[in-house]
Amino acid sequence: MNGVNEKTNRIGWWFIGLSIVGFAAFMIYPIVSSVKLVFSSLSGDSSTFVGFGNFVRLFHDTTFWSSLGNSFLFLIVEVPIMLLFAIILAVVLNSKTLKLRGFWRLLIFLPCVTSLVSYSILFKMLFSADGLINKFLENIHLISAPIPWLTDPTMAKIVIILALLWRWTGYNMIFFLAGLQNVSDEIYEAAEIDGASKIQQFMHITLPALRPIILFTAVQSTISTLQLFDEPMNITNGGPNNSSTTIAMYIYNVSFKYVPNFGYAAAMSYVVMFIILVLSVIQMKVANKDD
C-alpha cells in the first residue's frame, strides 16, 4: 500500500514501540493481574478461590444495584442535556455574525480549567443550605424557605447534574465547534436560498455533519459518567441516604473503606467495563445505522 516497501513499513514498529511498552506495563499487566482477583475473595492478605462467587454475591447486593442505578441516572439525564447544549453553543459561537467570538468561546470554556476537586468544593459551598444560591433565590422571592440542596435525595442528584453540566458543557462544545469548521458555508447559503428555516438547517445539515463527533463525545461521556467519582465524593459524599453514591464510589468503598475485598471490587469493575462495552457498541450501531 502507498507504494512503501515492507522494510520501511517495519520501521513503523519502532515508532510504536515505546507506547507498546508503556501499554503492556501499565494496562495489560494490571488487567491480567486483576483477572486473577475476580475469582478470588481477597480479604486483606488472605486470598481464597471462590469461582464465580463474587458475581453471585454481587447479584444479591442491593447497594451495588442502587449505586449502579444512580450512575445510570446521571448518565441518562446529564449526558443528553449536556451534548444538546454543547451543540447549540457551538452553533451560536460559530455564527459569522456574532461579534467577539473568541472572547465568548474563552468564557464558555473557562469552567474546564478548574480541577474536579476545586469546582466540586465551590459547588458544595454555593449550594449549602445557607449558601449563595439559596440566598439569591430568597432575595428575588422565588422561594420562601431555603431549598435543602444537599440534604434532599432528589436535590442532591440535581446539584451533581448541574455541576457536571457546568464543568463539561464547554469541554464538549470545543469538539463540536471544531467539527463545524468542516461544514462549508455554501451548504447553508444554498439551503437559505431554498427557503429552509434555521431549525431545518440545524436538523438536516448541522446534525448530520456532526454525527461522528456526537458519537465520539457520547462514547467519551458515557465512559466517564459511569466512572463518576470526584464530584459525588466531594459534593455530597454519596449522601443523603446513599442517594448519590455512584458505582465508582461503591467500588472505592469496598476497596478502601469497608473490610477490603479486592476480589469483589474487581468483579464489580468488570461488570462496569462490560456495561460500557455494550453501551459503546450500541451507540456506534445507532450512529452508523443510516450509512
Binding site: F26, S255, A265, S269, I276
Partner: peptide, 13 residues
C-alpha cells in the same frame, strides 16, 4: 482499552 474503568487497574497498579 479506553473503555476500561480505572478501578480495574487501580489495585494491581
Amino acid at each position: 482499552s479506553m473503555m476500561i474503568p480505572f478501578s480495574v487497574l487501580m489495585i494491581p497498579l
